[in-house]
Write a protein that binds this DNA or RNA. Structure first.
Lengths: 339, 339
DNA sequence: CTGAAAGCGCTTACAG
DNA sequence: CTGAAAGCGCTTACAG
């Protein structure tokens, strides 16, 4: 049978309360009492019963990771970061997928979210895009008074968030392409619901304009972050008049960049000799396609870690309202100097 | 404030116990009492406090999904299936990664696992490969008397499991290649710690032998399921004497198959015209590479679903000792008839 | 620095 | 068919 706090107390010859103080690192315990209790707790392999503690404190020691239709790679890194932060603080991570995409009315969304949240006893929630900007979710969370951290949100808000500077990253990547001599650089946009989409687009535009280039409509294609949408965009961009065909394509995530490479292959275009391609995210895919993708590495693990850390922090610890984390441009084999 | 069972009881003019009976679908409640209590619970948006219920029943209503260094795609499908089964039963899924790979001694592994499990109050755990066959994990689980379901285990055991028939799937895929006229069919093995590795190899061998073909050592390469290992294996298989070069390569997972396609591209070999390639798993990657991979679809979502279902089933429900789920051969564009 | 009492919101075992 | 009592293992608020 698992040891309880009473077992430890008896064995140490102190009261339950003293044991509780030791385990929660509260002050006002004699040092030798503290040491003795610790030793006995260890020996008995005592660990507090989460349910009992939760009932007494009305905390659950559970954090939820909420996501809607994410890329498995993205979510698995967020998840890993969040779990590591939870473990350090004695919390556990519960995963909660949502499918709000098909629901039309806001009311319906709110009801759905509420139904789930009513039975999810968590102390905090990590929201990943596009949930970070979902009004129904944010409303229910506020109504139920549940803390949350938004990952890569689009709009401002009172809640803490973690993110990266998509605009600058995209700007720098575009500059890299320009430095290689490219001028006809096309851009494939992502899904309109994601905050990153317009930021990445804006960074590209800024670099192009600073270079004195006019960006014709033919250079911009709409995608939705999926491979298929990237392939369609590539066919459109590469299928026009010869003088319009770009010498480089900047796809705003790796899946779409992989699709560009694939379509180029089907059309007999060599990457990077004839066409340079770059992506965004640095998913495992980036190193698995051939040629390996030049792309932007997002600090995804760290986003998950920081988000969870903020939620599990004790009230005496420093809080962070918002954190912008660093990215990195990964130069690989899919971009070449324009001949 | 959240409604409690007392609130519902007062409002319905019955005792707490009667409310409890209604909510847990226990017998011995008058039909109209039951209906009234249900209506009031709904109206108050009552849902039981998990911690209180857990303390009273010494159950946590939490299931853990344990994994060690998995493919994100694999784990995300298992996870999704498990979550859906949990939700139906009022459970939540906690994710718990492990990194046991670097630990050498069994003792050390056991201590590590025990440290984690001591503070993880779950009613059951789902073990994914290679944890499904990890002696330390299985031992600690038994010691702590925690139920588990093993996903795709290698060795038999008393615990329930879910899996698929890797040997037959591999056999059928090899037959498909044979039916296309291929004789020099190479095989790339996976990581030796995974149960699937030898089973898939065996299925390939059986088909080859039934076709009356001698499998020379040159046709077998060792990989570890990673893209890089697949690339190395492909270079070895395709770099020999002309008469030894296979006309088809069966990689035992999709990542390695993608690597084969990539290496073939680098060597100027057309897939599938000059070289047919097939994989195993049907990860999203299979449709993202070009040409799209002919591969085996594993019922990964369903494995997660069935595993969780077994763990959360009420004692009066039928139990399944072991379940072998169906696979499907996905014919796409990476295999062609031998000319 | 230490402890006894009450209570968190449920269920179990029992009585009627 | 229904309910009053006790208890699950902790913590909070208080007393000393």
């Amino acid at each position: 049978m698992k040891a309880t706090i009473t077992d430890v107390a008896k064995r140490a010859g102190v009261s339950m309360k003293t044991v509780s103080r030791v385990l929660n690192n509260e002050p006002n315990v004699a040092e030798n009492t503290r040491a003795r209790v610790k030793a006995i707790a260890d020996e008995l392999r005592y660990s507090p019963n989460l349910a009992a503690r939760g009932l007494a404190t009305s905390k659950s020691y559970l954090i939820a990771l909420m996501y809607d239709n994410p890329s498995p790679n993205y979510i698995s890194h967020i998840q890993r970061g969040a779990i590591d932060a939870c473990r350090e603080a004695g919390y556990h991570l519960v995963v909660q997928p949502f499918s709000l995409g098909d629901l039309v009315s806001t009311d319906e969304k709110i009801r759905t979210v509420r139904r789930v949240m009513d039975r999810l006893p968590v102390d905090g929630v990590i929201l990943t895009p596009p949930l970070s900007d979902n009004a129904a979710v944010l409303e229910v969370l506020e109504e139920l008074n549940i803390k949350c951290v938004r990952v890569a949100p689009k709009n401002g808000g009172a809640q803490p968030f973690v993110g990266m500077d998509d605009e600058t990253a995209s700007y720098q990547m575009t500059q890299h392409l320009l430095n290689q001599g490219h001028k006809k650089i096309a851009f494939i946009r992502g899904h309109a619901d994601h905050a990153a989409t317009s930021l990445r687009h804006a960074g590209y535009m800024r670099a192009m304009q600073e270079a004195g280039l006019v960006v014709s409509e033919n250079l911009i294609a709409q995608g939705d972050f999926s491979f298929e949408s990237g392939a369609a965009a590539a066919r459109k961009l590469l299928g026009g008049q010869t003088e319009d065909i770009p010498t480089a394509i900047f796809a705003s995530n790796d899946d779409m960049a992989a699709a560009v490479i694939s379509v180029a292959g089907q059309m007999g275009l060599n990457v990077p000799e004839t066409l340079s391609v770059c992506g965004f995210d640095d998913t495992p895919l980036a190193r698995v396609v051939w040629p390996a993708l030049t792309t932007v590495r997002q600090p995804i693990y760290k986003m998950g870690h920081q988000a969870a850390k903020e939620l599990v922090r004790r009230s005496d610890e420093q809080s962070e309202k918002g954190q912008i984390l660093d990215f990195e441009i990964m130069l690989r084999d899919s971009v070449a100097k324009l001949k």
